[in-house]
Simulated assay, not measured.
Amino acid sequence: MSSPSALPLRVAALPFASACAAREKPPFAAIAERLNELAREHVSLAVFPEMSLVGAARMERLRRTELEALSEPLDGPSIAAVSRAVEMSGVAAGVGWIERANDGALYNSYVVCMPDGARHVHRKLYPMESPHLRSGALFDVFDTPWGIKMSILIGADNYMPENARVAALKGATLLVAPHRSSVGPGVSLRPDWLARSIPARAGENGMFAVLCDARAEPRGACKPGEAMIADPCGVVIARGEHPERPMATASIDPELARHSEARRWLTARRPELYASLIASEAKEGGDARPWAQPEREVRARGSVAVSFAVVGRKRPIR
């Protein structure tokens, strides 16, 4: 097996909801098969969707006890199995799962497992899918063997431009953006909105960006979503040909990010002009205070019969 540093960084976005699509085998087994295939195509990094190790399609319908039953610690059997597959194939892999922390808290987390055994974890900052999930408080930026700094933003973390900007200011030149769309009544997010915003984040911050989305539909069904890779100019350089070939692959040159126009302008920022963007002081020990989840829109279930009458009285004309 070749060392990852000896190979160019070739990235693949695989928008497969493996846990839903492969019910006859554990999701990490399906991921292992994909990694072996990608190794033959000289792919260095495989990006799977948000919650790719979780079998439940709609998180908002699950009680806390159900989420706890699906959760695992970072050193649990599923992540261990993915790490073994990564070491054997030589292909780094990013996968999502429900993390159970040492204090019992539950997080929507994503880990990038490296062939050398390293594991880089990000906890979702905006876990909108369930009130039982705690919000993360750190922007994680880490070095890779390919000479590029990587950051992870999960799902709704990508909806706010400030998050990608913070990652860029911390040195990230590759943004991994795993996502899981919900399809059904009451869902307002349009898939094309996210597909347009991710290249914009790449162009604004002089970074590569990889979007990998799975679509969670009613009754537990999952389908491949959008897969794309954008360059530091905001140009989409690879896109899945859904549904025939939903996977997107591209080679990434770190120098393009370092010498991009946006990266040059990041050094010319005037932070003193942006004081109005700071709502509160950052919590000690983290990048952000705990997130207060916004109230969900209340929708009536079923129908209620309502009857009323308007009674008018004619007044005599004088």
Rank of each mutant, 00 (worst) to 15 (best):
Pro4Ile: 07
Ser5Gln: 13
Leu7Asp: 09
Arg10Gln: 14
Ala12Trp: 01
Ala13Ser: 11
Ala19Met: 06
Ala21Asn: 04
Glu24Ala: 10
Lys25His: 04
Pro27Phe: 01
Phe28Ile: 02
Ile31Pro: 00
Leu35Gln: 02
Leu38His: 07
Ala39Arg: 15
Arg40Gly: 13
Glu41Ala: 15
His42Trp: 10
Val43Gly: 14
Ala46Pro: 03
Glu50Trp: 00
Ser52Glu: 05
Ser52Asn: 02
Gly55Asn: 06
Gly55Glu: 12
Arg58Gln: 15
Met59Lys: 01
Glu60Met: 08
Arg63Leu: 06
Arg64Gly: 05
Arg64Cys: 03
Arg64Trp: 03
Leu67Lys: 00
Leu67Trp: 00
Leu67Ile: 05
Ala69His: 00
Leu70Arg: 06
Glu72Lys: 05
Pro73Gln: 04
Gly76Thr: 10
Gly76Ser: 12
Ser78Leu: 10
Ala81Gln: 04
Met88Val: 08
Ser89Glu: 01
Ser89Asp: 01
Gly90Glu: 08
Val95Leu: 09
Ile98Lys: 02
Asn102Tyr: 09
Asn102His: 11
Asp103Glu: 12
Asp103Pro: 09
Gly104Pro: 05
Pro115Val: 07
Arg119Ile: 09
His120Gln: 15
Arg123Thr: 10
Leu125Lys: 12
Glu129Met: 04
Ser130Asn: 01
Ser130Arg: 01
Ser130Ile: 02
Arg134Trp: 00
Arg134Lys: 13
Ser135Ile: 14
Leu138Thr: 14
Val141Leu: 13
Phe142Lys: 02
Pro145Glu: 09
Pro145Lys: 05
Ile148Val: 15
Met150Ala: 15
Ser151Trp: 06
Ile152Trp: 03
Ile152Met: 14
Ile154Pro: 02
Asn158Gln: 05
Tyr159Asp: 14
Asn163Ala: 13
Ala164His: 04
Arg165Ala: 12
Arg165Gln: 14
Lys170Met: 12
Lys170Gly: 05
Gly171Phe: 03
Thr173Trp: 01
Thr173Ala: 08
Ala177Gly: 10
Ser181Lys: 10
Ser181Pro: 02
Pro185Met: 07
Pro185Tyr: 04
Val187Ser: 04
Val187Asn: 07
Val187Met: 09
Ala195His: 05
Arg201Lys: 09
Arg201Pro: 01
Glu204His: 08
Gly206Glu: 03
Gly206Cys: 07
Met207Asp: 10
Phe208Cys: 02
Val210Ala: 15
Val210Asp: 08
Leu211Gly: 02
Leu211Ala: 03
Cys212Ile: 03
Asp213Gly: 10
Asp213Cys: 13
Arg215Leu: 13
Ala216Met: 02
Glu217Leu: 13
Gly220Cys: 09
Ala221Asn: 02
Cys222Phe: 09
Cys222Lys: 04
Pro224Ile: 13
Gly225Arg: 06
Glu226Asn: 08
Ala227Tyr: 00
Met228Ile: 14
Ala230Asp: 07
Ala230Phe: 04
Pro232Asn: 06
Pro232Val: 06
Val235Arg: 15
Ala238Cys: 08
Gly240Phe: 04
His242Asn: 15
Met247Asp: 14
Asp253Phe: 05
Glu255His: 08
Glu255Ile: 08
Ser260Asp: 10
Ser260Thr: 14
Trp265Val: 08
Thr267Met: 11
Arg269Asn: 07
Pro271Ile: 03
Ser280Leu: 11
Trp291Arg: 07
Gln293Lys: 03
Gln293Trp: 00
Arg296His: 01
Val298Arg: 05
Ala300Lys: 10
Ser303Arg: 15
Val306Lys: 07
Phe308Asp: 12
Val310His: 04
Val310Glu: 09
Val311Gly: 09
Arg313Gln: 15
Lys314Ser: 12
Arg315Asp: 03
Pro316Thr: 14
